[in-house]
Every structure is written in C-alpha cells, then in structure tokens.
Design a protein around this nucleic acid. Structure first.
Lengths: 124, 124
DNA sequence: ACTTTATATGACTATATAGTATTTTAACAA
DNA sequence: TTGTTAAAATACTATATAGTCATATAAAGT
C-alpha cells in the first residue's frame, strides 16, 4: 500500500525548516560564538584566533570550516597562513536580539525579586 | 602551582556566551521549529500540536518543556489538557532574519548560475 | 472509589558532534 | 632537495540529546 495516501501520522514533513535549524545550530556552540566574537574586530588568521580563544588547533579548524560552509565566514589564504573574516554581519544582529532579550528578562526578574523581598519579613 | 597565574592557554573563559548559545540551541531543531510554526496561529493544547506536527507524545512533551523553560512558550493547564502559547514573539524575528538571508543567498546563486550557464557551450 | 483521558517522566537506544591526538597537505625558506 | 611552519584532514573518545517505549501523575467523569 502506498504511504502517501490516507496516512494518519507525520502530516507535515517540513523540509522548509531544516536549513533554518541548521543555521541556528551553527550559532549554538560557545566555541563558535567565541570565534565570531574575536572576528568582530577584523580578519585574523587561524593562529591568532587560536591564541585569542584558547581553542585547540584541530578543533578550531573544524569550527572554522563549519562557519565557512554556513557562509558566515570567508576564507583567504595568505602565504602559509589562512585569514578568516566575517562575511555575513547579520549574525551580530541575531546575537544582539538574543542578548537584549536575555538582559531584559534578568532585569525583570531582579525587579520582581526586589518587590517581593520588600514585602517579606526581612524588610525593615 | 596555581593555575590562575601566568597561564598560556584558554585566555578567555567566555561565560557570557553560554546563555546565548543555549538560546540558539533551542531553535536549532526542526521539531521545535515545527512546534513554534504551529503556534503562530494561536494557543494549542498538546494533543492538537501532536496532530499538527506528527511528533510522538513523549517527544513532544520534552520539546514543549524545553521551549517553556527557555521562556519561548507559556504553559496554561485547562482541565485535563494543557495549552501552550508563544510567549516571546521575538523568535519569529530571528527566524525571519535567517529565512530572508537564506533566500537571498539562493537567489544570488541562481543568478550566478544563470550568468555562467549563458556563457557556456550549451547556450544557443 | 474506579475509569478514562491528557500530559509528564523515566529508562533506554541510537546518533551526532565537540574535543583531542595524530597524520597529511601546502607554502615558503635555506 | 630538505626543513619549517600553518592549516586541514583523519581517527578516535566521550558526551549530549532526539526519539521511543513504558510508566506515572493528574484531572474529570462515572
């Protein structure tokens, strides 16, 4: 019997979402965010990024490959070194949006705590 | 000898970045994006979301928990059912930014291909 | 009380991937 | 050529987590 007719489960095979999920996945590791954070100031070669981040060479190399394949970084060999640079600054917009929101939440929680603690038996 | 003095490696333990990475991680799975996509139209209970997405009950429950703990969804029990709702619409901004960018890139690649193919030996 | 229905939780498996050690490739210099 | 340095690739380990099955909890009806 054909699977495509009158199925009951998995009504939406959502192929649209995979590239989006993959993009977010690239941004979901501390090490990669560290690399991006470094490169905000401009292009750096692998050794420099390694010093700045403390990441191991092989590990770093893999992360850089991943970021380059995601077209977030660009890669420019110069002699024996390879320089990487931010290719798509949109990532900083994304990070800022998230950071701002996380900050707001923390502020709100602090406010809430302040109000509640003022009502408690510890308040003078 | 104390680790903290004159170290050579791991110059930046970047604790700032962990919450940001965690946030992106929540958005980095197709199933969770599927759930969020459903809920754009309004609150739904777990059974409804399950039907709409085709996700298994236990799996769905875990994703909903994760999204709720990330404060992306809010949770409202109503009798024996539990309704979930978008709490922080900022996620849609994020998704739109990414989608738009991915679309741009595809467009550019198509253009590039078109130009190159017009120059090739297959062109009339 | 018992039953049913909806959701959550725990145990488990399978897969993906971050990190590391090692090897390989590539570019330049002597 | 050989040597040196920088980066990438390969092989491996360890951990995290998506998915599933089974069980537990909780609310509402009988």
């Amino acid at each position: 019997m054909p699977k495509s007719s009158h199925r009951k489960k998995t009504p939406k095979p959502p192929e649209y979402l995979a590239p989006v999920a993959d993009y977010f996945k690239v941004l979901s590791e501390i090490s990669r965010l560290q690399i991006l954070s470094c490169l905000r100031e401009g292009a750096m070669n692998v050794s420099e990024i390694g010093e700045a981040t403390g990441l191991g060479q092989a590990n770093l190399s893999k992360h850089l490959k991943m970021l380059t394949e995601a077209e977030i970084l660009s890669r420019q060999p110069q002699g024996v070194a390879v320089y990487y640079e931010i290719k798509d600054p949109m990532i900083f917009e994304l990070c800022e949006l998230v950071c701002d929101r996380l900050y707001e939440r923390m502020q709100q929680k602090a406010e809430k705590f302040k109000r509640l603690s003022a009502l408690s038996s510890f308040a003078k």
